[in-house]
Design a protein around this nucleic acid. Structure first.
Lengths: 212, 212, 212, 212
DNA sequence: AATGAATGAGTTTTCATTCAT
DNA sequence: TATGAATGAAAACTCATTCAT
C-alpha cells in the first residue's frame, strides 16, 4: 500500500530509477519544468525525494532524462513501422496515421516538447544522441519520396524534412492546441468523434498535397 | 525629490495598466505561468508590485488578461486582411501567408497558447467573448471555400474549421517546435533562410492540398 | 512579548535592519558561517526570515555586513583612546590594556575573525573601506614609537605593524584559545582571576620588550 | 574486476583508518566542523562513507579524533627538540623558532583549534590524555626559566604557562589572522618575505621581553 | 494611485545517518 | 571489512500576497 503501482521494490536501483523517470515524465508533462515539483515526482514513484538527486543530480538533469526518454519511445515505435517494406503510398499513409495516433495517445510527449521549446531547447540542444536517433527516419522518408516520384504518385520537389514537419504539424497543432481551439471555436475537439474526423482530414489533406 | 527618473507616469492609471499588461505578456511568454514572477512583471513595467494586485487581482487574473490581449491582437490583424474582397485563390494564399508571418513575428503568442493548453485552457475556456471574436474568421473562410468550389479551383468537401487548423498547424509546429526540430535534425531552422524556405513550402503544400 | 529586546517595531526599516545585524553578529560568532542559521538570525531579531534577504541579499552578504560592523565598532573605540594626547609610555600601556580589555569583553569579535580567516578573508579581502579605517591607528602607533625613541624609552627599530600584531597577539591568543589552553594545561583560564593575571603579564611582557 | 583503480587497500583496516583520519584533518581544517562533509572525507580517503561510521561512530567522534591527532603530532615534534640539553638562551630561542615554524607549516593545526574554541573545546575538554601530553613541555620550560634566572639571563618572575602562551601568541595571531590582517593593513603578510620578517620580529621581541 | 515593508507557505537542495547485502 | 541504496530532517532561498502609509 506504500506504492502506487509496480511490484514491491526495495534496494532495486534499476526499478527505482525507472519509476522515477516515469513519474518525472508525467509530472513535467502535467506542470512544465517550472511548475513540476520534485516532491511530487518522488511521491508518484513511491520513493524518497533525495533519490532524485542521488540518481539524476538535479531537477534540470531529470528533466533532460525525461525528454530523452520520450524521444526514445517515439523513435522506437516509428522503427517498428517498417516503412521501407511498403509501397510508397501505403508507407506514407501509415506514417501520417501513426503520427496522428501517437500524439493522440501520448499527450505527455507534446507537453514536454512545448516546455522545452520555450526554453529554446536548452536541455537537448546539441545532443548528438538525439540527432543520430532521428536521421534514419528522414532517410526512410527520403527513400519513400523517391520511390513514389519514380512511380509517378508523388511530386518530385519535396524536401523530406519539410514534409516531416508538415505531416507532424497537421496532427500536432490539433492536439497541442486542442483546448484553446475548442474554446475559440466553441466546439469540443477532444471527443472521439472529433478526433476521428480530424484523423481523416489530416490523412486526406496531406496525401492530396503530395500528388504531382 | 520624490522620484528617481524614468518617464513621468505617476497617477496615470491607463498607462500603468497597459505597461503592466505588456510586461505580463512578455514575462508569461518567456517563462510560462508557473515560471513567471509577479516581481519581474512589475519591474519590467517600472512600477510597484502591488499595482499588479490593484489592477488585476491576482497572478491568474493578469495571466488571463494577457491571453485575451494576444488573441485580440491577432484577430485585429486578421480583420485587416479583407479576405472577403479578394478572389478565392488570392484570399487563401494571403491567409496562409499571414498565418505564417504572424507567428514568425509574434513568438509570445505561441508561447502563451502552449502554456494555456497544458492547463486545458482553464483560463479562457467558455469565454464567450473569444468565441464571438473568432466566428467571423470562420465565416470568411467558409465563404472563400464556397466561392472557390464554385469557380472549380477548390475541392468541395472541406470543413473551414479543419482547414483553418491545417493552415495554422503547418506554420505553428514549425515555430512552436523550432528549437527541438533543429536539435533532432541537426539543422538550424531559425535562420532567415530556413524561415523563408519554410514559408514557401507551407503555401505550396496547403494550396496543393486544396486542389479539386 | 513577541520580541526579545528592543522597542515595539513595525514598519521601521532602520530598526529592523539594525536588529538583524545585531542578531547576525551573535549567531555567526556562536556558530560560524557554515553553522549559523538564517532562521535563527531572523528569530533573534524578532522578524520574518525573508527580511534577511530583503535587506541583505544572502547569507554571505549579511555575514560580510556583520564583519564590517564589528570592525567599525573596535576602531570607534580605539579612536576614543586619544593616544596622541598621551606621553609615549602611557599611550603604549593604554593601547595594550585596551586591546586586552576589548577582546575580553567582545568574544564575538574574535569568533568572527577566526571564521573569516579560515576562508582566507574572502568576504573582506580588498575592502578599501576597512583599510582606510585602520590606517590612522598605525599612524598613531608610529608616532608614539618615534616620540618614545626620542625620549629614550623605546627601542628605535620597531615596525608599527609588527608591534601592533605582537600587542594584539599576546592578548588574542589567550582569548581565542582560552578553552583549548585550559584543557591542555588543566587550568581554568577563564576565571576573573586568571584573566586579571594574564592582563598584568601581557602589559608587563610587552612593555619590557620595548625597552631599548 | 571488482575494483577500479588506486592502491590496493581493500581489507586493510589500519591503512583505511589512517587515510580517513588524514582526510578528516584536512576537511575539518578547510571547512570547520559545521562546514565539513562526511561524504567529502570519505572521498578524500578514497573509501565508502559508511566506513567513517564503522571506524569512528559519528561526525563528532571523527572530529575529536582529528583534534587529538594534530595535538599528538605537535607534541611529538616538541619532544624532539631536546630543549633540556641546551643552555637556557639557546633553548628558549629554539622553542620560539619552533613554535613559529610549526604554525607556518601546519595551517590545519590552527584551523582545527579555532573551531574547537568556538565550541568551548567541548570535544577535548577534560581530556586527561591531552593534559598529560602537555605537562612535560611546561616542566621543560620551567626548568629552562630557572636555569636562565640562575645564570642571570632571564627575569625571575615569569610563569611558564604565561610565557608559553605569550610565545605562541606572538606567532599564532600572525598566522591565524594573516588574511584579515593583510586586508586591514593593505599589506600581503603571506609572502615568504613577510613571514621571514615576522619570524625575526617574534624571536627578537620575545627574547627582549625575557631580559632581567 | 502608488509604494516599500512584511509575511507564511513552499521549493530545491543538502546532509548525517541507517539499511541491506 | 566494505559498499551503494535509501531516508528524514533540515537549510537556504523564493514567491505570491497582504499591510501600513
Amino acid at each position: 500500500m506504500r506504492e502506487e503501482g509496480g511490484a514491491e521494490r526495495r534496494r532495486d536501483p534499476v526499478a527505482t530509477k525507472a519509476a522515477l523517470l516515469k513519474a518525472a515524465v508525467a509530472e513535467f508533462a502535467a506542470k512544465g519544468l517550472a511548475g513540476a515539483r520534485i516532491d511530487e515526482i518522488a511521491q508518484r514513484a513511491g520513493v524518497n525525494k533525495q533519490l532524485v538527486y542521488h540518481y539524476f543530480g538535479s531537477k534540470d538533469d531529470i528533466y533532460r532524462a525525461a525528454l530523452e526518454q520520450v524521444y526514445a519511445e517515439i523513435r522506437e515505435r516509428e522503427k517498428a513501422l517498417h516503412l521501407g517494406d511498403l509501397p510508397p503510398l501505403a508507407a506514407m499513409e501509415r506514417l501520417i496515421g501513426f503520427s496522428f495516433d501517437y500524439l493522440a495517445e501520448h499527450p505527455e510527449f507534446l507537453a514536454l516538447l512545448a516546455d522545452e521549446n520555450r526554453e529554446a531547447a536548452r536541455h537537448i540542444r546539441g545532443s548528438e544522441r538525439l540527432e543520430q536517433m532521428h536521421s534514419p527516419l528522414i532517410a526512410l522518408l527520403k527513400e519513400a519520396l523517391e520511390r513514389g516520384a519514380e512511380e509517378g504518385v508523388f511530386r518530385r520537389d519535396l524536401d523530406p524534412v519539410q514534409l516531416y514537419i508538415s505531416i507532424s504539424g497537421l496532427s500536432y497543432f490539433f492536439f497541442s492546441n486542442n483546448f484553446t481551439l475548442s474554446a475559440i471555436f466553441g466546439r469540443s475537439l477532444d471527443t472521439p468523434k472529433a478526433v476521428a474526423e480530424r484523423r481523416r482530414h489530416v490523412i486526406d489533406f496531406a496525401m492530396k498535397a503530395l500528388r504531382p
